[in-house]
Amino acid sequence: MEAIKSSKLLKGDGGPRSIKKITLGEGSQFKYVKHKVEGIGKENFSYSYSVIESDVLMNTFEKINYEIKFIAGPSGGSVCKSTSKHYTIGDIEIKEEQTKSLGNVQGR
């Protein structure tokens, strides 16, 4: 099963404010995700983006922001740290368990 069927840059050059559409594979429960690149930190090895359009948002979320950062590991190598912030539409309240299931599509 292919996780990603295709990826297309819709706006920009891949840097901040760029938008890309990722079409997910046939085995996925979701069809596509549009990412907006928020920032790239070359000096601190970070990348941040928002999911701005997708069936992943399930008419519940306005957007989801992700930040990925690589830091030096305690015994060499590196450690990847990821955080997310979910913005709901209106007054919708979401439980933490519901947002954890969305983590499966974040890196796509």
Score class of each variant (00 low, 15 high):
D55C: 07
M58Q: 15
S48F: 05
G12E: 09
G15E: 12
H35Y: 10
K34G: 00
A3G: 04
K42R: 10
E2V: 13
K11H: 11
E97V: 10
F45E: 03
A72Q: 12
G76R: 08
V37D: 03
I64W: 02
S7F: 00
I40A: 06
G25I: 12
Q29T: 09
F61N: 05
H86Q: 04
K81M: 13
E96G: 04
E26V: 10
G73W: 13
E26S: 14
L24G: 05
R108H: 05
L9A: 03
G39N: 14
E96F: 06
V37S: 02
M1V: 13
S54H: 01
H35P: 00
T60M: 12
E2C: 04
C80G: 02
K69H: 08
Y87K: 09
S50L: 03
S84Q: 07
K36E: 15
S82Y: 04
G90Q: 08
G103F: 01
E2W: 08
I4R: 07
G27R: 02
V105I: 13
S101D: 07
D13N: 15
T60C: 07
G12H: 09
K69L: 06
S28H: 01
I68C: 07
G25T: 08
I22P: 02
N65P: 00
K100Q: 13
P74V: 09
G25V: 08
L10C: 03
A3T: 10
E62A: 12
I68P: 00
K11S: 14
G103V: 06
T83M: 06
G73L: 09
H86W: 13
E43N: 13
K21E: 15
L24F: 15
S78A: 10
S18Y: 10
V51R: 01
Y66V: 15
G90E: 10
I92P: 00
Y49T: 05
I40K: 04
I92N: 12
G107V: 04
G76P: 09
I94S: 02
N59F: 05
S7A: 15
I52P: 07
Q98N: 03
S48K: 03
I68N: 03
D13G: 05
N104M: 06
F30D: 05
S82T: 14
G39W: 00
E26K: 13
E62W: 00
T60N: 05
N104L: 10
K31V: 08
S7H: 01
P16D: 05
Y66R: 05
S6P: 01
K95N: 12
V105S: 07
G107F: 14
I71L: 11
L102M: 13
S54T: 04
G41Q: 07
A72V: 02
K34H: 11
S18L: 04
L102A: 03
D55L: 07
K34Q: 14
P16M: 10
I4M: 11
F45P: 00
N44E: 09
S82I: 15
K20D: 13
I89N: 01
I68Q: 06
K20G: 09
L102H: 04
E97S: 14
K100F: 14
E96N: 11
T23Y: 00
L9H: 09
R108L: 15
S48L: 09
S48I: 10
R17T: 15
N65L: 05
V79N: 11
S28Y: 01
G25C: 06
D91W: 01
L57G: 05
G103C: 12
V79C: 06
G25D: 06
E38T: 04
T83Q: 10
F70L: 15
Y47K: 02
K5R: 15
G90W: 11
